[in-house]
Design a protein around this nucleic acid. Structure first.
Length: 501
DNA sequence: ATAGGGTTAG
C-alpha cells in the first residue's frame, strides 16, 4: 500500500486499504502517512479524525505532514497536544522548523528536547543522529559556530558514527561557519561519501574563493567515480565567480553539459552572468541572457544590473531595470538603482517619483542585518539599532573607531547612500550599518586578540568592506565576515577577497 | 509492518 503512495498513486493505495478485511492501527497509519507523503494533508487529517485508535506514529505523521506543506503552527499544535513523544516526534518537529527556514526555533526546540523529554512522565529523550542533522543544518544557516562545535563534541563524546548524513551536515556546518579546514577534516574522516559530500566540500572552498582546492576536489571526485550533479557545478561555477576567473568559469560551464551530461539550469546561467558582469564583460553577459534557451528570471537580470552598477554603465542599467520590473515589480534593487541614477544626474524629481512608486507598490528593501555569537548567544543588529542592552558602550566604541579610522586615512564611501540627506547624515547612516554595530559589540565583549566572526544577510557594502579592512589592522584582530554568498577574512588591513566580490 | 535527516546563483 505504501508503495502506491510513494509513486503518487493515492487512489490505488486507498482502494487497497478499502479492500482489506482486517485493519489494525498500522494499516490506518500507512494510509495517513501515504496521503501526507503525496502532499495531501487535508486527506490525511480526514483519516486521522476517523481513527478510533491512534498511537505515537499517527501523531508524528500529522506533525510531519503539516510541516511538509509549511503549516508550522498546525504541526506545532499536533506536537504540543500529542499524548506522548519519542525521539522521532521530536525529530519531526525540529526538522519541520529547520526545513521552513526557522533555524533559531529549531535550535530552541532542541534545547527543550534536552530539558523536558516527553513532557508527560518527565522521561528524557536522547537526541540521535537524525536530530543532530537538522540542528547542524540550522547552525550552518545561522553561522552559529560555537553551537555547532558543541554538537561536534557531543558526537565525539557519544562515539557516534559519522554516517553520510551526519558527516555531510557536520562538514557543511563547518564550511558555512568559516572553518574550511575543519570541514576538510570531517570530510576526510568520513568512511562513505556521496555526491552531496563532494558538493559540500567544493562549495565550501568556493565560498572562500579558493578555486584550486575546489577543482582539486572535483578531480578527486571523478577519480572516485562519483558523478557530479547540477549542485556540484554550482559550487565550481561560484568558485570561479568569487575569484573572478572568467575563462575557467566559461570552460566549466561548457563542459558541464558536453562532458558530464548535466544540463545547465537558470541558476547556472545566473552564476555565469554574475561572473561576466562583475568582471566587466557586460556585452557578453547580456548576449548570454538573450541567447538562453530557458527564460531568464529577475535574479539573472539582477546579476547583470549589479555589473552595470559596479562598472557605471547607466544606459544598459536603465534598460535592464525595465526587464526586471516586467518580471517582478517588487524588485527593490531596481527602484533603488534607478533612483540613484536619476539623483546622480541631478534629476531629483525623477528620483523622488521612483521612490514613491516603490512605496506605492509596497516594495520593501530587505533590511540589512548582522549577527555575532558571543557566549552561546546570538546577538542581532539592524542598521541604526539601539535595542541592545549594551547600546551605549557599542556607540562609544563606534565613535572611537570612527576617529581612529579617519586618522588611518579612511574616507566614508557615501556615494551609494540615498541622495536626499546631508553629507554628515550620510556618514552617520553608513557608520551605523549593522555590520559595524556587530563588530563594535564583538570588540567590547570578547578578549583581546579573539577572532571576530560576523554573519550578515546581505552582501557586504563597499564602505563596510573598506572600514573593516582598516579596523582589522588598528585593533590587531582577525575579522571573518560571512555575507550572503561568501567569506571575507580581514587581517592586517587586507581582505582575502582581494577586493573582488 | 506504520512516523524523523544533508548540498543549489542574487
Amino acid at each position: 500500500m505504501d508503495m502506491y503512495f510513494k509513486f503518487g498513486e493515492a487512489k490505488a493505495g486507498r482502494r487497497l486499504f478499502e479492500g482489506m478485511v482486517v485493519r489494525d492501527v498500522v494499516s490506518w497509519n500507512t494510509l495517513v502517512s501515504g496521503y501526507s507523503l503525496c502532499g495531501d494533508v487535508d486527506a490525511a487529517r480526514c483519516v486521522f479524525d476517523q481513527m478510533e485508535e491512534k498511537n505515537l506514529v499517527t501523531w508524528s505523521t500529522m506533525v510531519t505532514g503539516y510541516a511538509r506543506v509549511g503549516k508550522l503552527d498546525v504541526a506545532r499544535w499536533f506536537f504540543d497536544v500529542m499524548p506522548e513523544r519519542n525521539v522521532v516526534s521530536w525529530n519531526a518537529i525540529i526538522a519541520g522548523y529547520a526545513q521552513n527556514d526557522k533555524y533559531s526555533e529549531a535550535i530552541d526546540l532542541f534545547y527543550q528536547m534536552l530539558e523536558v523529554g516527553d513532557g508527560g512522565r518527565g522521561r528524557r529523550v536522547k537526541p540521535n543522529d537524525v536530530t543532530l542533522v537538522s540542528v547542524l543544518s540550522s547552525c550552518a544557516h545561522l553561522g552559529a559556530l560555537d553551537f555547532g562545535k558543541r554538537i561536534d563534541r557531543f558526537i565525539n563524546r557519544n562515539k557516534m558514527e559519522l554516517n553520510v548524513f551526519l558527516g555531510n551536515a557536520l562538514a557543511d556546518m563547518f564550511a558555512k561557519c568559516g572553518c574550511v579546514e575543519e570541514c576538510k577534516r570531517v570530510f576526510e574522516k568520513m568512511r562513505e561519501r556521496d555526491v552531496i559530500s563532494w558538493s559540500i566540500i567544493i562549495s565550501g572552498f568556493a565560498m572562500y574563493g579558493q578555486v584550486e582546492e575546489a577543482f582539486g576536489y572535483f578531480l578527486k571526485m571523478l577519480e572516485c567515480r562519483v558523478k557530479p550533479n547540477e549542485i556540484t557545478f554550482m559550487g565550481l561555477l561560484s568558485a570561479c565567480t568569487h575569484a573572478g576567473m572568467v575563462e575557467k568559469g566559461l570552460e566549466c560551464f561548457n563542459q558541464m553539459e558536453n562532458e558530464y551530461g548535466v544540463a545547465p539550469k537558470v541558476e547556472h546561467y545566473g552564476c555565469v552572468v554574475d561572473l561576466l558582469s562583475r568582471a566587466g564583460c557586460l556585452n557578453d553577459a547580456e548576449d548570454m541572457i538573450n541567447a538562453m534557451p530557458i527564460r531568464p528570471n529577475a535574479i539573472v537580470w539582477g546579476a547583470l544590473l549589479g555589473g552595470c552598477r559596479i562598472h557605471k554603465d547607466v544606459s544598459r542599467g536603465v534598460r535592464v531595470v525595465q526587464r526586471i520590473l516586467e518580471i517582478n515589480s517588487d524588485h527593490s534593487g531596481s527602484y533603488v538603482y534607478l533612483a540613484n541614477v536619476y539623483a546622480s544626474m541631478g534629476r531629483l524629481d525623477d528620483a523622488a517619483i521612483c521612490r514613491l512608486r516603490m512605496r506605492d507598490n509596497c516594495v520593501k528593501r530587505t533590511p540589512g542585518c548582522s549577527w555575532i555569537e558571543v557566549n552561546n548567544t546570538v546577538h542581532e543588529f539592524f542598521m541604526g539599532d539601539r535595542s541592545h542592552p549594551l547600546t551605549d558602550r557599542i556607540y562609544l566604541m563606534l565613535s572611537e573607531l570612527g576617529t581612529r579610522l579617519k586618522l588611518a586615512g579612511y574616507e566614508p564611501k557615501t556615494e551609494l547612500v540615498v541622495h536626499n540627506v546631508h553629507e554628515e547624515e550620510k556618514e552617520d547612516a553608513l557608520f551605523t550599518h549593522s555590520e559595524k554595530l556587530a563588530i563594535a559589540f564583538g570588540l567590547i565583549s570578547t578578549s583581546h586578540g579573539t577572532t571576530i566572526r560576523i554573519v550578515k544577510n546581505l552582501r557586504v557594502c563597499i564602505d563596510c568592506h573598506e572600514a573593516t579592512k582598516i579596523i582589522s589592522k588598528i585593533v590587531s584582530r582577525e575579522i571573518i565576515v560571512r555575507d550572503r554568498s561568501r567569506f571575507h577574512l580581514f587581517k592586517d588591513g587586507k581582505c582575502s577577497c582581494n577586493d573582488y566580490w
